[in-house]
């Protein structure tokens, strides 16, 4: 990869590149669908998603309620739409936090003088070993009833992982001829970071982050299963899935929707990540005449 491989093309170029791959298109479509659902839920849902109505307990689908109602008579379709908002917020928040933490850790592990940098490297090693579960447990206990505790717990845990992978990339880039040349030419650290490091780790970072978003959605479901997810009555998909799980055999249909929503969202994020990778890596970018290929 040359110095300009990732840097030369602007954001528009990357988007066009992603959409040129099949997985990128599919991923963008699925992610777009989730974003759309979240946006719609901001202005409209068929019912108030948290409104209970004893008369509509377990109301069947396709009647007054498009997807039926849960035990408390809450509209499942409205919950699904509103859940998109929460799940998306958790995914985006987690990813953003993971990006900041990851980049900060990675940069401070390669840029400062060796003793400091080495300290950071080992700190990251310790943090990686620190159970994510414990962070989530402590945060949820200290600040009960807040959605952001889920975001922070996941962002911390995943950010450290992003940092580790990014650190490797940074070290690789730092050792390249053009960075050494820039150094020799007297370029400052800030300039090297802006002109060379960030643009060159950007492709890997984007891929990592799209995967992180997917992992966040699944991890949110796992935390919700343990009662550590977003608090009630926020109808995050993970929590819906957990609340409805006793009815797996009795009412499989009510479980289908949040489950499907989670799967499609993660799939969307991951495919988007693949698209990014293919778009960023010239080797994987399909030649014009084999545009159909684009393995997901």
């Amino acid at each position: 990869m040359s110095a300009g491989a990732g840097a030369g093309r602007g954001a528009g170029g990357i988007v066009r590149g992603v959409l040129r791959t099949r997985s990128g298109r599919l991923g963008a479509a699925l992610s777009g669908l989730i974003v759309l659902a979240a946006l719609v839920s901001l202005v409209w849902t068929p019912y108030d998603p948290t409104q209970v109505d004893p008369a509509d307990s377990w109301a069947p689908p396709f009647g007054r309620h498009p997807l039926g109602a849960d035990r408390l008579g809450r509209d499942l379709c409205s919950q699904l739409l509103a859940g998109a908002r929460i799940t998306l917020a958790v995914a985006v928040g987690t990813t953003a936090l993971a990006a900041v933490i990851g980049l900060a850790l990675a940069l401070s592990a390669v840029l400062p003088p060796p003793p400091v940098a080495r300290g950071v490297v080992h700190l990251v090693d310790v943090l990686v070993a620190f159970p994510l579960l414990l962070i989530a447990l402590v945060l949820a206990a200290v600040f009960p009833g807040r959605t952001w505790t889920t975001v922070v717990a996941l962002g911390l845990g995943l950010g450290v992982q992003v940092g580790r992978v990014t650190r490797g990339e940074l070290r690789r880039v730092l050792a390249t001829d053009y960075v050494l040349a820039a150094r020799a030419a007297g370029a400052g650290t800030g300039r090297i970071v802006r002109r060379h490091l960030l643009p060159n780790v950007a492709p890997t970072l984007w891929v990592q982050l799209s995967l992180t978003a997917g992992v966040a959605v699944v991890a949110e479901a796992a935390l919700s299963y343990l009662g550590l997810g977003p608090p009630p009555p926020a109808p995050s998909w993970g929590r819906s899935l957990h609340d409805l799980q006793p009815y797996l055999t009795l009412r499989p249909l009510v479980l289908l929707w949040p489950g499907l929503a989670i799967v499609l969202t993660v799939l969307g994020f991951n495919l988007l990540g693949d698209g990014l990778r293919e778009a960023a890596d010239p080797h994987l970018r399909p030649a014009p005449h084999t545009a159909v290929d684009g393995a997901p």
Binding site: V218, A221, A222, G238, H242, Q245, G259, I262, V263, N270
Partner: peptide, 8 residues
């Protein structure tokens, strides 16, 4: 495999 929650 990545997209399905494990408890599910």
């Amino acid at each position: 495999g990545l997209a399905v929650p494990s408890f599910w």
